[in-house]
């Protein structure tokens, strides 16, 4: 290192460490994702992770075909589907609710979609809170209620319904906005709010908290849909996985076990 002194030794040392890190990451990548065959790529909502992890494990065991689950928020999944990679296209899309599949369909991205489960809006109470017996209790008990914003189906459908029935004006001052339905549920779990309006399927992931099914929330429903994407490089395999998800003995069984009201 003539001419560079001790600083040069540090520079070369850091370059050597960087090369070592690159090698370590490459080895790790090769172990995690063998390059024998491209897996089926499923963009799934993070909230559906328990169901899809079980389904993918079973599917891999039965067919020998690898499934790569890529999780994220539904709106972010939609962005990825809109920006398909030529070398790494997605095969299936499973967002948290049907509204994202509808959006993808309008953009011409969906080859086929099928409903898997239905969800309805319920009130998830913070730990230790007693369920309201009537809608008026929300006001009389001065309850703070978390609700996802309008980008999420629960936020949009709840607002639409309550505006139509004239109840929104009463609820609005008590509403604390959240980005997603799970953010709402987590706010209730931590006691940051007294209750959250969430899907029943989401509420079942919080077994230590009570839920209330208020008549005023009746009719606020959505479906979980799974779509095969047009960009899929292997549509036949994607179709096969979709059938597996819809099979009452396979995919639907896992959804049912996790508390979803499945569509037979």
């Amino acid at each position: 290192m003539a001419g560079t002194g001790r600083a040069g030794v540090w520079a070369v040392g850091s370059a050597a460490v960087a090369v070592g890190l690159i090698v370590a990451l490459a080895v790790r990548e090769r172990t995690a994702a063998p390059t024998d065959a491209r897996p089926l790529v499923v963009y799934a909502a993070a909230s559906l992770r328990p169901a899809f992890t079980r389904i993918a494990t079973e599917y891999e065991a039965e067919t020998g075909q690898r499934v790569e689950l890529r999780f994220g928020a539904s709106e972010e999944m939609l962005t990825r589907v809109r920006l398909p990679s030529a070398v790494d296209p997605g095969d299936l899309f499973a967002p948290a609710d049907e509204s994202y599949v509808t959006s993808a369909d309008k953009l011409g991205l969906v080859a086929e979609s099928r409903p898997v489960a239905r969800m309805r809006a319920v009130l998830l109470l913070a730990p230790g809170r007693m369920p309201p017996t009537a809608w008026g209790d929300l006001a009389s008990r001065d309850m703070r209620v978390s609700l996802a914003n309008e980008a999420a189906a629960i936020g949009r459908l709840t607002r639409q319904r309550l505006i139509a029935t004239g109840l929104w004006r009463e609820l609005e001052p008590r509403v604390r906005g959240a980005a997603t339905v799970t953010d709402s549920a987590n706010a209730a779990k931590l006691g940051a709010v007294d209750a959250a309006i969430v899907w029943d399927a989401v509420a079942r992931q919080y077994p230590d908290q009570r839920t209330a099914e208020l008549p005023e929330l009746t009719g606020i429903e959505a479906e979980v849909r799974v779509a095969v994407l047009r960009q899929s490089a292997r549509p036949a395999d994607a179709e096969r996985f979709l059938r597996f998800v819809l099979d009452p003995e396979h995919g639907l069984r896992h959804f049912r076990d996790l508390g979803f009201r499945v569509v037979e």
Partner: peptide, 23 residues
Amino acid sequence: GVTRGRTEVLPTAVYLELSVGNV
């Protein structure tokens, strides 16, 4: 993205757990 065991880092692991209510 968040592919478990492949591109999942600690902050995204936190996010995945929060997304199923596992605070």
